[in-house]
Simulated assay, not measured.
Amino acid sequence: MRMKLLTYSSFASPGIQPGEVEQILAKSRANNARDAVTGLLMFNGAAFVQAIEGPVAAVDHLYMRLVNDPRHCQISRHDDLALERRIFDEWTMGYVQINGGWLEGQYDVADALAREMPDSVRKLLMSMANTLPFE
Score class of each variant (00 low, 15 high):
Pro14Cys: 03
Glu116Pro: 14
Ala114Ile: 04
Ala112Asn: 07
Pro70Phe: 02
Gly15Asn: 08
Val59Glu: 06
Leu103Tyr: 11
Val56Ile: 11
Glu90Lys: 01
Ile52Pro: 01
Ser28Ala: 15
Asn68Pro: 07
Leu125Met: 15
Asp60Cys: 10
Val109Asn: 00
Ala57Pro: 06
Leu113Trp: 05
Ala129Gly: 08
Val21Gly: 06
Ser9Gly: 08
Ala46His: 14
Glu20Arg: 03
Leu25Tyr: 10
Val67Glu: 09
Phe88Thr: 02
Ile16Trp: 11
Asp60Pro: 09
Val121Glu: 02
Gln50Lys: 00
Gly100Leu: 15
Ala12Arg: 14
Pro14Trp: 10
Ala58Arg: 06
Gln106Leu: 12
Val56Asn: 02
Asp111His: 02
Gln74Cys: 11
Met42Ile: 13
Val56Cys: 12
Arg29Ser: 03
Phe88Glu: 00
Pro118His: 13
Gly19Ala: 13
Gln23Pro: 00
His78Arg: 00
Ile87Trp: 00
Gly94Pro: 00
Arg34Gln: 11
Ser28His: 14
Gln106Ser: 14
Ala36His: 09
Leu6Cys: 02
Tyr95Lys: 03
Glu104Tyr: 02
Tyr63Cys: 04
Ala30Pro: 08
Met42Tyr: 08
Asp111Ile: 03
Phe43Ala: 00
Ala82Pro: 10
Pro118Leu: 05
Ala129Ser: 11
Pro55Val: 13
Pro70Cys: 01
Glu104Lys: 10
Ile75Cys: 08
Glu20Thr: 09
Gln97Val: 14
Ala82Trp: 03
Leu81Thr: 06
Arg34Met: 14
Cys73Pro: 01
Met126Trp: 03
Ala47Ser: 08
Gln17Arg: 03
Gln97Glu: 13
Val21Tyr: 02
Gly45Ala: 05
His61Gly: 05
Phe11Trp: 01
Thr38Arg: 02
